[in-house]
């Protein structure tokens, strides 16, 4: 496993349990989509995997070694595991040129070598060709898709082994989105990068991911190969999420009432039971164990009997 989490919890002030018991395995060369509504803890989980948040319990390990939170160890770790932020306009400093934006990682990490050549190489790999033409441009002179490529180039310049991308296409135009997703796919296929994509977009997961983990209120509630989870969902939450993806061929959508729930008040028993359309009495009292990482397809639901699990 290149990146793994065991029993991971992150609690913020006031008892907000943003991540509340997550086991996760990310094998090298895999594209994993972490999906869920806003407030489900997916961004906090991603930030914890990046070492940006310290877990309140549990651990993150990289290459089998538990993550150390000394600043020196973190600096090395971050050259290997890079983040691609959502909203490229917000992620780029408007007063830095493309060259400075991409070279920043090299400067922070004090990488020796030909800086201009490394920056040009990263821009080219992110699909901005010829790279020299972009060196002196400012973010506001670029289109949305080009800006997202600059952000990706900034992550690639350090030759990381893992990319963690938080909603990489949610702020892009529909026709540009496919090109950025193709880029992530080709980075995996050609450079062997491991990619964790955090998204609420199930179409994105269907487009590029090998596996999907569905998160609800700080826990992973279903995980498995993308084709299985998205065409044969087991957890009622996954079923509901899939049913509301706009698609005319689908039958009656299951629209769950209410807003995404509050991670300061996690319900007892199954955390999904207050919104579950197929809730049973025991769901209100029986809490479910943390889903164990597996290569198969599993769901944390009392109705999903363990005999179905492979």
């Amino acid at each position: 496993m290149i990146l793994a989490a065991r029993g991971l919890s992150v609690t913020f002030n006031g008892g907000v349990r943003a991540v509340d018991g997550v086991d996760l395995d990310l094998p090298a060369g895999e594209i994993l989509a972490l999906v869920g509504e806003s407030g489900c803890g997916k961004t906090t989980l991603a930030r914890t995997l990046l070492g940006l948040e310290k877990p309140s319990s549990g651990s993150v390990s990289f290459d089998g070694q538990p993550l150390s939170y000394s600043s020196k160890a973190l600096k090395h770790f971050r050259s290997q595991v890079q983040m691609v932020q959502q909203d490229p306009l917000g992620a780029l400093n408007p007063r830095h040129t493309v060259y400075d934006a991409v070279a920043e990682g090299l400067r922070v990490q004090k990488v020796r070598g030909d800086e201009a050549a490394l920056v040009a190489d990263a821009l080219a790999r992110a699909g901005l060709r010829p790279p020299e033409r972009f060196f002196l441009r400012y973010p506001q002179e670029l289109s949305g898709g080009q800006r997202q490529r600059v952000v990706i180039a900034g992550a690639l310049v350090l030759n990381p082994r893992v990319l963690i991308a938080d909603e990489p296409v949610s702020s892009l135009d529909a026709s540009v989105r496919g090109e950025i997703l193709s880029l992530l796919l080709s980075l995996r296929n050609e450079l062997g990068l491991t990619v964790l994509v955090v998204t609420h977009d199930l179409g994105l997961a269907w487009n590029i991911s090998d596996r999907v983990s569905v998160m609800y209120l700080g826990r992973i509630v279903e995980t498995g190969p993308t084709a299985e989870v998205l065409t044969n969902p087991q957890h009622p939450y996954t079923k509901a999420l899939l049913s509301v993806v706009p698609d005319i061929s689908r039958t009656q959508p299951t629209v769950l009432a209410g807003e995404p729930p509050d991670s300061a008040r996690i319900p007892k028993g199954c955390r999904f039971h207050p919104r579950c359309p197929v809730v049973m009495d025991e769901c209100q009292t029986t809490s479910l164990p943390i889903l164990q990482p597996t290569i198969g397809h599993v769901a944390a639901c009392l109705r999903h009997s363990p005999s179905d699990q492979r």
Partner: peptide, 14 residues
Amino acid sequence: RIGDPSARYAPAGL
């Protein structure tokens, strides 16, 4: 469309 095999590993864009 989720379930469409032709879209797997083939994001479409312009």
